[in-house]
Design a protein around this nucleic acid. Structure first.
Lengths: 121, 121
DNA sequence: CTAAACAGTGGACTACGCTCCAAGGTCAAG
DNA sequence: CTTGACCTTGGAGCGTAGTCCACTGTTTAG
């Protein structure tokens, strides 16, 4: 698959895809003419990358996790460990969100909690 | 409260605090000598800002929300609306995280799901 | 009076995650 | 053989969120 089609199928720009390759999120095969050639699996992979990214994982983290997987002696086990680790991170983030939510919930109707901190009032 | 003490009490740098003031997260009173003078409420406010920020809200968003509050005719009502809005956002984020978590969960032990997308293997 | 410990400003610089652009190579159709 | 659509590279530029620095002013203690 050439870069343009991958761009269409993932909703990314070509420049974005090239950037992702540059930072190691995608490894590049080249056709004899120098064009990049992506396997179809690149599509779900990029969707996964976008999802993980919007959830607060940096591209470097995502790339590093990919590499850890690639270099693991026992892939199935390494994969499980990595996913378990990600799940722990997600749980931690969810807990933080729950705490903020509870905090805001508690402030609703209790006067002027945020504004009190804003000296303009 | 002078900037140095606020920095100590919030764990921020003075430069960071000045930056926050510059982008409108903090409004500056000045002493006759030109020094910034912060009310004690700035401490919980900055803690709140940091929390909201780590949860994915941009400084611009946080500042804008603060302004919306300030400009609202009925502060208590506006506050409730704003907090309700934030809570909705948080719920949406939590739902996304839950979805990713379930996705990862489902992948654990099912072969080579991420690696399949990484053409190096 | 001077030195130390604070404060102020402006501007350069960083890292991340892109986006845009110019100049040029490749390929299929007419 | 040219046109157009596609691809390549390198480099500049941008927005966000700061950090760091030099130089200068202010306050306090000895």
């Amino acid at each position: 698959m050439l870069i343009g089609e991958l761009a269409v199928q993932t909703g990314m720009t070509k420049d974005g895809i090239r950037f992702y390759e540059k930072v190691g999120l995608l490894t590049g095969r080249r056709l004899p003419n120098g064009y990049r050639d992506f396997p179809p699996e690149a599509v779900p992979w990029l969707h996964y990358v976008r999802t993980a990214q919007t959830l607060g994982f940096s591209l470097a983290e995502i790339a590093r996790h990919g590499e850890e997987l690639r270099d693991a002696p026992d892939t199935a086990e390494a994969l499980s460990a990595l996913l378990a680790e990600k799940i722990r991170l997600i749980d931690a983030r969810m807990a933080e969100l729950a705490a903020l939510r509870a905090d805001l919930d508690a402030r609703v109707g209790t006067g002027c909690p945020l504004r009190a901190a804003d000296p303009v009032s």
